Computed example of a mutant assay.
Amino acid sequence: MNNLIGVGVYTPAEAGRLLHIRPAKISRWLRGHRIKKQNYPSLWTPEVNLGDEHVFLGFRDLMEVRVADAFIRAGVSAQRVRAAIILARDVIGQERPLSTNRFRTDGREIFVSVIETGEDGKERERLLNLFKRQYEFKGIIEPILKTVDFGDDGNPLLWWPSGRRMNVVVDPSRAFGQPIEAASSVPTVILAAAARQEGVSGAARAYAVPEAAIRRAIEFEASLEHGLAA
């Protein structure tokens, strides 16, 4: 069994609720599947293994699924995403390369950021097309991971699923990676449930948080339910 401290633990249903992705799709990506006589292997091995046949995700898996889905929504095929993961492992040297801060896409190709030192000693960022194996300098959109805080090593640390304005964060080191009110670390699902029972003012007093935090938790949880229904 993995050491789960600081990893976060999510079922496909929990991950799907947060990411607005069908849980069955997440399970297929992480378990692999078969269509007719064609086998499709898993995109990667989840970082959480509880010793049974069920699929669980860690925080890095959550971020990896988010980016893979974003690429596919941008028009990149699932097959090319799978190929990009394999190629990027060699370039970046990480098992879950999509969740780092080094990827770009223009809707057709997938690029990885490479830092090179020129003859003048200055470092420059170049974008390596993983399929053409050459450098590209134009037609690149903004980085996908705008709501993620990264460490100095380029790996994801925190995710602000509704943007920083909402002040709701997913932090694998707190509350097992469940969405929390950033200042108090109380899970948003608990704050929203308390508001239903005690009202906004009562919930704020009970958990010693501002009433604005309760309202944001209610709004965030409602957005998850809306996304799941959609």
Rank of each mutant, 00 (worst) to 15 (best):
E198L: 14
A182G: 00
V170M: 02
R205H: 13
Q178D: 00
I180P: 04
S162H: 04
D171Y: 03
S162T: 01
Q197S: 11
V209K: 04
V186T: 15
S201V: 12
V200A: 03
V170K: 01
R196Y: 01
A192G: 02
Q197R: 15
A183K: 15
S185Q: 15
D171A: 08
G163D: 10
G163M: 11
A192M: 02
A175Y: 03
E181N: 14
P172V: 03
Y207T: 10
V186R: 07
S185C: 15
A175D: 12
L191W: 07
A192W: 01
A194R: 08
L191R: 10
W160T: 05
A195D: 02
Q197Y: 01
F176H: 09
A182S: 13
A204D: 10
V186I: 15
E181W: 13
R164M: 10
I190M: 10
S184G: 11
V169P: 02
R205P: 00
P161L: 03
E181M: 12
P161S: 03
G202N: 05
A203M: 04
A208G: 12
V189A: 14
A206I: 08
P161C: 04
V209D: 09
Y207Q: 08
E181Y: 11
D171K: 05
M166S: 14
R205Y: 07
W159M: 07
